[in-house]
Computed example of a mutant assay.
Amino acid sequence: MSTPSRRAPAPMRSERVWRFMAAVFARFLRRHMNALRLARWGAPRRVDHPGPLVIYCNHPSWWDAAVLILLADRLFPGRPMFAPFDAKMLERYGIFRRLGAFPVDLESRRGAAQFLVSARAVLAEPGHMLWITAQGRFSDARSRPLDLRPGIAHLAEIAPEALFLPLALDYAFWDERGAEACCAFGEPIAARDLLRLSRGERLARLEAGLTATLDALSADVMARDPARFVPVIEGARGIGGVYDLWRRAVALARGRRFDPAHGAAEAERNP
Rank of each mutant, 00 (worst) to 15 (best):
A101C: 13
L169S: 02
G235L: 06
L245W: 14
F185T: 01
E207N: 11
E268I: 01
L195N: 11
I95E: 08
V250A: 13
G94P: 04
G186V: 07
P231I: 09
T211R: 13
A134T: 03
A10L: 02
L116E: 02
R74I: 04
R110N: 12
D147F: 09
Y243V: 13
A121G: 07
D259S: 11
R257A: 15
R97M: 04
D225W: 04
M81C: 10
A121L: 01
P188I: 03
W63G: 08
S61D: 14
A8L: 13
A65V: 14
L130W: 03
H32I: 00
C183Y: 00
Q135P: 03
L36S: 04
P231S: 14
G209R: 07
D259M: 09
R228K: 13
G200R: 14
M89L: 15
C57V: 06
A8F: 07
R237Y: 12
P44M: 06
A261I: 03
R228Q: 06
G240F: 10
L29P: 00
P44N: 10
V230Q: 15
F85Q: 11
P60Q: 08
R40F: 03
R31M: 05
A22M: 11
G136M: 07
L90P: 00
R269S: 13
E15K: 13
S2P: 12
Y56E: 03
L206V: 08
D193V: 07
L75F: 11
R37K: 10
K88E: 15
D86A: 12
W246G: 03
G241T: 12
R16D: 06
A216Q: 11
D193H: 10
G238R: 06
K88N: 13
P188Y: 06
R177Y: 14
I189N: 01
P52R: 08
T133H: 02
T211W: 01
D48R: 13
F173A: 11
L70Q: 06
A223H: 02
D259Y: 06
I55G: 04
R13I: 11
L106V: 15
F28G: 04
I152A: 00
R199N: 10
R228V: 00
L75W: 09
S5P: 00
P44I: 08
A219E: 13
A141F: 03
A65R: 07
M129N: 02
Y243T: 13
R257T: 15
D244N: 10
M81K: 02
F96L: 10
V117W: 00
D170Q: 11
L203N: 10
A134N: 05
P50T: 10
